[in-house]
Design a protein around this nucleic acid. Structure first.
Lengths: 347, 347
DNA sequence: ATTTAGCACTCAAGGACATAGAGTGCTAGC
DNA sequence: GCTAGCACTCTATGTCCTTGAGTGCTAAAT
């Protein structure tokens, strides 16, 4: 593969990303660093087409990159512009504002910022909840026979659920029950919270058994709820305002978290770009794809262990040279922030 | 206004809602309960057009209803089909499932069900948070110098916020602080939580002052956050898949909660239907409208007092005869469920 | 005084056709 | 191996024409 051909591929992709129109030989010949004629470029483009990197919408049109063309472009041609100090500062300001003390709110904040900056949709999924450990259980009365169960895990996730009992508990009973739960559940992994375990809790408590059934049941449901990986989504609107993506596709795709999550999870370290042709088929058999879209996935770690993935979904015609460094920067920064020695907050 | 003209108006609206095509005189003449010729209907339609109830997209097309036409239809012609037992059962099953014990989750559940059934977008806003009273304050350590403030109001809303302190508190300090907060804030209205009040809290605590600053600050922010009316939205996707609404309009509109909330709030009792022509202009001066859309708003009450609004946003071409009863049913049901004697849960 | 049948009229939608222009592939010469 | 030149292709655009649904008006019928 010729150096000039690579240069031409890069030029086509750059130009196409910029304008969205098929790129002709003349346009490329006009570039300052191209010193060959349009005819030569035509010959090279014909070769690139045979290699499957470019294609023509029709005979009398310019060329546009194929999936494969983008791939090669990203791997070989694109010079990923590093981030300037100002850019870093801007990103920091957008993503790491006031409310980023818990892991969840941090991820929330980053996806929002990423979606905003890139004008794409940003998605994220936390790999950790499965391994979380209960760090606090509380039961709080909030109305007539109405109690709120509060569960906090080691990762800082907080959830609650309301339960209605048949009878009201007096303060003493409540304190005892809460204490009892704390003793038996503090430090327990969410994966270990099973119906059997709950059963044991109930029987061990004897007298209270009947009364507290709904609470224990609620607690179990809450723990299951917390184990479930949750998809954080931001900026779907950006996709909808994007001309080259089909609204129906977007709606259908975004409705199916079960399609998106594996795409985030199945990536390993580093940044990974995939296009709509590589869409995966979920269990149901039906495929959900956004035509002409691309998805860029990166992963962050916590204390060295893989901890979650962040993805950007946008048109295939995307400024990869800018967007990939953004994603890289954020995954690194998140890794820093959530890893054990959290001392170095933003200045 | 002739009875026959009203019948013709109704027929045009019904037919148009059904097919989306302009309705011609012949179509109406073919209806079983119409016993006049197409020519007669043409004459009547010409009159209805002069009254501003119908219009023609172009000379050689049938008629479609105007905004005013829909208004008259809804007020005078439409026979609102009451709900059958089965329908009620279906609605109940969809909206009042497991997690409807708190007001917030109830509203959530209802908007989701409403959006699903009507294939519209459903929005809701709770009028009450402004009047809520603090019923529980808690401070929970969740990491190194990391604390979560938990606030629960009388209406059952639960929110939390993480804060980082300069130093760690020991158990005694924490217990004292929590106790102190509970004493001073339990039963206090959110509107009364002011910076001055926080100031007083801090100074009154003397020694702890410096250390606890961020917590008190966080508490204040949290209380402000809880006071803010929140818009519950469900089913925006339904609008996006709707052919006759413009995607860009929808995106722009849904982004501006400050436009939607007043539309919900400014309705008084009963059901109110408005069309895109009546869109309100927000402060900014720019108008956000979804062309060809209509919004149906109903309000629910709590213990006799107005407590919030639920709205449906959909195409103007909407089956009002079905949808309005749905909304009525849900507002009534919510009113029942959240009002003081909550004894009568779903069977 | 209504209602109806008949008819001329209007206008959007869609098909057929011509034109312009961008871009190509190929060939012959540098 | 590169380039100029040229014939060729194909879309996008514009014009013209036809078709058909639906109307408004008029004159006759009830």
């Amino acid at each position: 593969m010729d150096a000039r051909k690579l240069r031409i591929l890069a030029a086509v992709v750059d130009e196409y990303i910029l304008t969205g129109e098929p790129v002709g030989s003349k346009t490329i010949a006009a570039l300052p660093d191209i010193h060959v004629s349009a005819a030569t470029i035509r010959n090279d483009m014909a070769v690139l087409e045979q290699l499957g990197l470019l294609e023509q919408p029709h005979t009398s049109a310019g060329r546009i990159p194929t999936f494969q063309g983008y791939k090669v472009y990203i791997e070989k041609c694109m010079q990923s512009e590093g981030l300037s100090e100002e850019e870093r500062a801007k990103l920091d300001q957008m993503a790491f504002g006031s409310d980023t003390l818990t892991e969840d709110s941090l991820i929330d904040s980053v996806t929002t910022a990423l979606a905003e900056i890139t004008q794409c949709a940003a998605v994220a999924v936390n790999a950790m909840p499965k391994f979380s450990v209960i760090s606090k259980v509380d039961v709080i009365p909030t109305g007539k026979r109405l109690y709120v169960i509060l569960l906090i895990t080691s990762s800082g996730t907080i959830k609650n659920k309301a339960c209605r009992l048949e009878f009201d508990l007096n303060e003493e009973q409540l304190a005892f029950f809460t204490q009892y739960l704390t003793e038996h559940l503090h430090g327990v992994s969410l994966t270990d919270v099973s119906p059997e375990m709950m059963e044991q809790l109930v029987t061990a408590m004897g007298a209270y058994m009947v009364t507290l059934g709904p609470l224990v049941q609620g607690l179990y449901e809450l723990s299951r709820d917390m184990m479930r990986q949750e998809l954080t989504v931001s900026g779907t609107r950006n996709l909808l305002t994007c001309e080259e993506l089909d609204t129906q596709d977007i709606v259908a795709f975004m409705e199916h978290q079960d399609v998106i999550m594996p795409m985030l999870n199945d990536t390993f370290s580093g940044i990974h770009v995939m296009f709509s042709n590589e869409a995966q088929t979920p269990q149901s058999g039906q495929t959900f794809v956004i035509g002409n879209s691309s998805m860029i996935v990166g992963r962050y770690r916590k204390d060295g262990k893989d901890a979650g993935g962040i993805g950007l979904i946008g048109p295939m015609r995307l400024n990869y040279a800018k967007v990939i460094p953004y994603l890289e920067y954020f995954t690194e920064k998140i890794t820093d922030l959530i890893s054990e020695k959290k001392e170095d907050e933003e200045t």
